[in-house]
Write a protein that binds this DNA or RNA. Structure first.
Length: 459
RNA sequence: GUGGGUGUAGCUCAGUUGGUUAGAGCGUCGGAUUGUGGUUCCGAAGGUCGUCGGUUCGAGCCCGAUCUCCCACCCCA
């Protein structure tokens, strides 16, 4: 009792008002997922540690929340590890973690999905389209728009190489954000073009270093990008040979022409261009989003192999992406199922929430749920109201009876605080007359109605 | 994981070169109104000043450590 209660760093409580808004986001996303033929899936909060490690790169492994083994975890630690520690010798952190923990909280929804597909491959009919809306956990340092527990809303189709899937995902993204009333930019690139660029530079092995530097272009500028590449061991001639990247302005048709002149001789580049063209040609007109080719878009190099997507809000101050996704050719390979190509998209509900809040895009009527409150004058009046309450609820109207016979001011204040638009007053007088006094809280007016007129009076 | 800032009532914040019983606004609760909220008036409750330690006759204020939140980096939704 002495210490103030609190919650772990980077986690949050969601008040009823926040939950109404969060549900609005989840429901909008979910209904679009369903409309495009995706079906729900859930996986456990915990996975085996081995399922997760090594899937997100070195940085990712560090950010996985490990769960301490139950019982006396220390007792089970291998004797040679204990000996080393006793002598004060270094033990590799990963090794020690593996000794003390064999479970971990999920880091994203894609890897558990891949695990699920491999485990249940004989029960599934491909292409398999699933959506998943669940929290994920990362042991990151919290910041604006960055939490240690947050929700992802994923839709993936696995077992189909068709580019129609990419096209559908772009339309799906557009429809979700149109539904939320938010203008966004969908940035698209193809991992194959980045590979081609590294090849033409003569240092294909530096692709990751080049791309992570180029990814920061709009943030730090061309000079700093080149500086960072140089620091990572990219030669000056290589840097010079990828310079055309920075001059790829214009419409997709113009960008495509420039890319063909620059990288067209390489088969990988041809393939990437073919992919992107198919997406641009088949997408058609969008409602709320702008689709643009962004040659500096890199993201998720761990498993993406084809098209990659990222969504940024065109309104509000949040610069980070609010959705991301792409094509992966061999995600299930690491779990023993080869040749399963898939493509997916992930919506960051928590960041979408922040943007909608800042830009005032939440619908105003999300506020209240109860439409009618019966006041409570005492046992006899409450029992009388209870019968009417059932009728109102039967008509599909949310209603409640104040549970205690406290003074009227408190009951009215309750209705006011909760945003309840109508209050039914049934005291001694009304019971005698067989009427109900209905007060419109917004107008401040009230009138007596018969029981049969009650529903009409509050509709 | 690296660097910087921050922490005083439920919330937003004052608090003088270190000096007695730490303040305001909003909110909460009670009353004016024993059948009427949102406006008004009156009153009350609520703080081991993030935590632990140090300097000092004396610390909300100075020093150290630690935690939290915020900002930048890394990375990411």
């Amino acid at each position: 009792m002495a210490t103030k209660p609190s919650i772990p760093k980077g986690t949050r409580d969601f008040s009823p008002q926040e939950m109404l808004r969060r549900k609005y986001i989840f429901q909008t996303i979910e209904s679009v997922f369903r409309k495009y033929g995706f079906l729900p899936l859930e996986t456990p909060a915990m996975e085996n540690l081995a399922t997760l490690t090594g899937k997100y790169g070195e940085e990712g492994d560090r950010l996985i929340f490990k769960v301490l083994n139950s019982g006396d975890a220390w007792k089970e630690v291998a004797p040679e590890v204990k000996e080393k520690l006793a002598k004060g010798e270094e033990v590799h952190p990963g090794r020690l973690a593996a000794e003390l923990s064999d479970k971990a909280l999920r880091y994203d929804l894609t890897v558990p999905f891949a695990r699920y597909v491999v485990q249940h491959q004989n029960e599934l009919s491909f292409p398999f389209k699933r959506y998943q809306i669940q929290p994920v956990w990362r042991a990151d340092r919290p910041q604006k728009g960055r939490y240690r527990e947050f929700y992802q809303c994923d839709a993936d189709v696995i077992g189909s190489k068709s580019l129609l899937n990419e096209v559908e995902l772009v339309q799906l993204i557009d429809e979700v954000y149109a539904g939320l009333g938010l203008r966004v930019a969908i940035k698209v690139n193809d991992r194959k073009l980045l590979t081609a660029m590294a090849q033409i530079s003569g240092q294909p092995e530096k692709v990751v270093d080049m791309v992570t530097a180029i990814d920061k272009l709009d943030k730090i500028g061309q000079d700093k990008v080149e500086e960072e590449m140089r620091a990572k061991g990219v030669t000056d001639t290589a840097i010079a040979s990828i310079a055309p990247l920075f001059r790829l302005s214009g419409t997709w048709a113009e960008q495509k022409e420039k890319l063909e002149r620059w990288l067209g001789s390489l088969p990988v580049a041809q393939e990437g261009l073919k992919n992107l063209s198919a997406i641009f040609d088949a997408t058609g007109s969008l409602g709320s989003a702008v689709l643009e080719f962004d040659p500096t878009l890199a993201r998720g190099l761990d498993y993406y192999t084809g098209a990659i997507f990222e969504v940024k809000a065109a309104e509000g101050s949040l610069q980070s992406s609010i959705s991301g996704g792409g094509r992966y050719d061999d995600l299930t390979g690491i779990f023993g199922l080869k040749g399963m190509s898939g493509v997916g998209i992930s919506f960051g509900a928590d960041r979408i929430y922040d943007v909608l809040l800042e830009t005032g895009k939440f619908p105003a009527e999300l506020g209240s749920s109860t439409r009618l409150l019966f006041t409570n004058f005492g046992e006899a009046e409450a029992l009388h109201s209870l019968a009417l309450l059932r009728e109102v609820r039967k008509a599909g109207i949310a209603a409640e009876l104040y549970p205690d016979a406290v003074k009227m001011a408190k009951q009215f204040k309750y209705a006011d605080d909760k945003g309840i638009p109508f209050v039914a007053i049934i005291g001694e007088q009304e019971m005698k007359d067989g009427t109900i006094t209905v007060k419109d809280m917004k107008r401040g007016e009230q009138r007596a109605v018969k029981a049969t007129e009650l529903i009409a009076a509050i509709s």
